[in-house]
Simulated scan of single mutants.
Amino acid sequence: MPDRATSSDGADMTISILIQFVRRAFLIGAITLLAACSQKAETLKLSVTQFGSATEQAFDHYDAAYSTQFAPFPKSDTAKRSAFVSNITDFTGTITPANIDTLLDPDAVKIDPSVARQWQDTLKGLRSQYQQFVAIFDNIEAGSAFGASALTESGPILEKLRTQLATISDEFARTPPQFLTRRSTLIAELNLIRTKDHNNPEAESLLIEAWWQQWNSLIAAERAMQTDTLRAFVTASALGSRLQGQIDNYAKLDAGSLITAVEDGIKLSSQIGKLSPAELVTQGTGLLETATN
Rank of each mutant, 00 (worst) to 15 (best):
I28G: 04
I111L: 03
D12I: 02
D3E: 15
G125M: 05
I266K: 15
S270H: 15
T292R: 02
T89M: 14
G52D: 03
T292M: 01
L34Q: 14
W119T: 06
F233L: 09
L151C: 12
T195P: 00
W212L: 12
P2Q: 15
D121W: 11
G125K: 05
N200L: 00
G265R: 07
F233W: 05
A232D: 07
V281Q: 04
K45P: 01
S53A: 03
D170Q: 04
R194Y: 00
L218Q: 01
T102V: 06
Q132W: 06
F70L: 12
Y250L: 06
K267F: 12
A238M: 08
D138R: 08
S276L: 09
F70C: 06
A278H: 11
Q271Y: 13
G286S: 13
R231A: 14
A71S: 11
V48T: 05
Q132M: 07
L207I: 02
R24V: 04
T175D: 09
Q50I: 03
L151R: 14
I17F: 07
S169K: 00
Q120N: 13
K45V: 08
L27G: 04
F26Y: 05
C37K: 07
R24T: 06
Q271C: 12
S269N: 15
A11W: 08
Y62L: 11
L268F: 05
P106K: 02
V281D: 01
F233E: 00
R162V: 03
R194C: 00
A220M: 07
T6W: 07
L275V: 12
F133C: 02
S76A: 02
T260V: 15
I19A: 07
T32D: 14
S76Y: 03
W119D: 05
T285C: 10
E171K: 09
L243S: 00
Q283E: 13
T122D: 12
L44W: 01
T122K: 09
K267H: 13
E202G: 00
A65C: 12
P176W: 03
D90S: 14
E159L: 10
N99E: 10
G29V: 13
I157H: 11
I88R: 09
T181C: 04
Q20A: 14
S128N: 14
I266S: 15
A238G: 05
S217M: 07
E56F: 04
L158W: 00
D60C: 04
L165D: 00
S184I: 03
D60S: 11
A251Y: 05
K160S: 04
